[in-house]
């Protein structure tokens, strides 16, 4: 259970080497006894990146694309004790041109960014429901709002995730479990290295701070980072298609 100051005692980070994911953990109020479980493919890398966090860290193997393992994975991480916060941060970004050349890679992207989240979050949610408390943080994206020709497979995967998370959040109403959907704009960081930032771009630390603030409220269900993206998302939806398809990136 979170304590009175909203400090979780056990955190599960899916995509344990994720820059945003680790930034979120670092931005949270942590108690000395807080236990962080990093789940991902590269155990050594996760350990290295989490070395400066002021809490107990353990790592466990998790592959977002290995759908058949997700149920056992969830059963195992929840076996010891309750988990108060699950951050679903696994995700990849591959340039559209590469996907056009190699459609199978597009399948991997969708599997990592969408399908793997669905199977993992459903498996995790079963345990959260049973324990009657807990918070899920799901990282969506501004790209989920409307697919852009420059980036539409990624956009489609995030749109699927966004829709799934909204439905999951509604299904969790009254269960004691809460879902926070995070929609950052363009995040400058490892994932977008070499790409020129768009207007209203943000950083992993700013995303993390926004998530930490949203988690202190009892009501927030979705958070845009920066906040100005909310009205822009509306404009994006309303833009006529003839104009929209001319958007270069």
């Amino acid at each position: 259970m979170n304590d009175a100051q909203g400090r979780p005692s056990r955190i599960l980070l899916l995509g344990g080497a994720s820059e945003i994911g680790l930034a979120i953990v670092a931005a949270l109020p942590l108690a000395p006894d807080t236990h962080l479980i990093l789940a991902g493919r590269n155990l050594a890398q996760m350990e290295e990146r989490a070395a400066t966090l002021p809490c107990t860290v353990t790592t466990t193997a998790y592959d977002a694309t290995a759908l058949e393992t997700h149920r056992d994975f969830a059963d195992t991480v929840f076996a010891d004790a309750d988990i108060d916060l699950v951050i679903s941060a696994a995700g990849i970004l591959i340039p559209q041109s590469e996907l056009d050349r190699d459609p199978q890679r597009a399948g991997e992207l969708v599997q990592t960014n969408f399908t793997g989240h669905v199977t993992t979050l459903l498996a995790v949610t079963r345990h959260l429901r049973n324990q009657g408390h807990g918070t899920l943080v799901v990282l969506s994206s501004i790209a989920a709002v409307r697919p852009r020709r420059a980036n539409f497979v990624y956009g489609a995967s995030k749109a699927g995730l966004d829709a799934f998370a909204q439905g999951l959040a509604d299904s969790l109403h009254g269960s004691g479990v809460r879902l926070l959907l995070v929609r950052p704009g363009f995040v400058t960081g490892r994932m977008t290295q070499g790409m020129p930032p768009t207007p209203l771009s943000t950083t992993p630390d700013r995303v993390a701070a926004a998530v930490a603030t949203a988690l202190t409220t009892t009501t927030a269900t979705a958070v845009w980072v920066p906040r100005a993206l909310a009205p822009i998302a509306l404009l994006m939806r309303l833009t006529p298609r003839v104009l929209w398809r001319r958007v270069k990136r």
Binding site: M1, A4, Q5, G132, G174, G176
Partner: peptide, 16 residues
Amino acid sequence: EERVLTGWGRTTRSRA
């Protein structure tokens, strides 16, 4: 009845 319970201080909540 499934219900989300809190203490008098309303800081922690859980369903039971």
